[in-house]
């Protein structure tokens, strides 16, 4: 009797969380898959996938999302890692620097977009600053940026925003690292660069993987800063399309199914990219072991 009770008790404790997941997570996800793969009358059809793929914005959205994810993750990881290495050294003012570096984390994405939008407007503070510093004569028309320039713009703004969160994960990892690993490297002849490459990065790998995956997922789902800066359709992203269909044109007959189909596409791409990343990492590890 007592044993039986012991066996079931954990499941009993899990029930509320489980219920929550079934209701608010599994059900909508299954629903999305179902809706994306059926016609209006409920019969099986890949019509909406072909609709999505043939949509004029789709190619641009896919390209932008992938480019954005690739470039921003690499850029953010590199800069954040360098900042973390710097802040991990205790020096005068390092605490203040850490505090300043963390400020962007406290700013919500909508506020970030407003901050930069006012900055980049024709008579905004960035042009003002550049003119005051005598670097330019005429204001630059930032907001008319198109295509890759606009994308690069968004990457830089996103980097400014999320850098602290990436850095803090890496910094936490660095602070847990036994200082003697590094010192052993110094004693046994490694240069600063070799220590980072051969000792710190491999030992920190689990932390790095966590940080990169979190960033990859978030980068694939970027949309808000694009919409806030440029409005819908200027620099399309996959998730921006979802927002477009649910927010801008919710009354269209196809909108509901189009946004769900886009959701399924994004989810699939995110899962595939993460799997590829993990696979590549594992392969590298095997090579190292030999």
């Amino acid at each position: 009797m007592k044993n039986k009770y012991k066996k079931w008790f954990p499941y009993f404790l899990l029930t509320p969380a489980l219920l929550y997941y079934v209701l608010f997570w599994i059900r909508p996800v299954l629903r999305a898959f179902f809706e994306s793969m059926t016609d209006y009358d409920g019969s099986f059809s890949l019509m909406f996938f072909s609709k999505v793929i043939n949509e004029s914005m789709f190619t641009a959205a896919l390209r932008n999302s992938l480019l954005f994810a690739l470039i921003s993750v690499m850029l953010q990881f590199t800069v954040a890692f360098m900042m973390a290495l710097l802040l991990n050294k205790k020096f005068k003012g390092s605490n203040l620097l850490l505090f300043v570096a963390l400020i962007p984390m406290a700013v919500p994405p909508a506020a970030v977009a407003i901050l930069w939008k006012t900055g980049f407007s024709t008579f905004g503070w960035i042009n003002n600053l550049l003119i005051t510093l005598n670097l330019i004569k005429e204001p630059i028309l930032w907001m008319t940026a198109k295509g890759y320039n606009a994308l690069l713009f968004l990457i830089l703004i996103d980097t400014w925003t999320v850098l602290p969160s990436v850095m803090i994960i890496l910094l936490a990892g660095l602070q847990n690292l036994n200082k003697e690993y590094e010192e052993a490297g110094l004693i046994f002849g490694a240069s600063r660069f070799q220590i980072i490459k051969d000792i710190i990065m491999p030992i920190l790998k689990p932390t790095i993987i966590t940080a990169v995956i979190l960033r990859m997922i978030a980068a694939m789902q970027v949309w808000m800063i694009s919409v806030m800066m440029f409005g819908y359709g200027r620099v399309p992203f996959l998730v921006e399309r979802i927002a477009y269909y649910t927010d801008m044109v919710p009354m269209l007959k196809e909108s509901y199914k189009m946004s769900l189909t886009y959701s399924v596409v994004v989810t699939t791409i995110v899962m595939i990219s993460v799997m590829i990343y993990l696979r590549v990492n594992k392969k590298k590890e095997k090579e190292v072991r030999i």
Partner: peptide, 22 residues
């Protein structure tokens, strides 16, 4: 001089053998 230029070798309290290397 840098540690590596001094011709010294060290055994650390925590051993500090690198965990990711054989």
């Amino acid at each position: 001089l840098q540690p590596r230029e001094r011709g010294v070798s060290m055994i650390f309290q925590s051993y500090a053998i690198w965990p990711h290397m054989t």
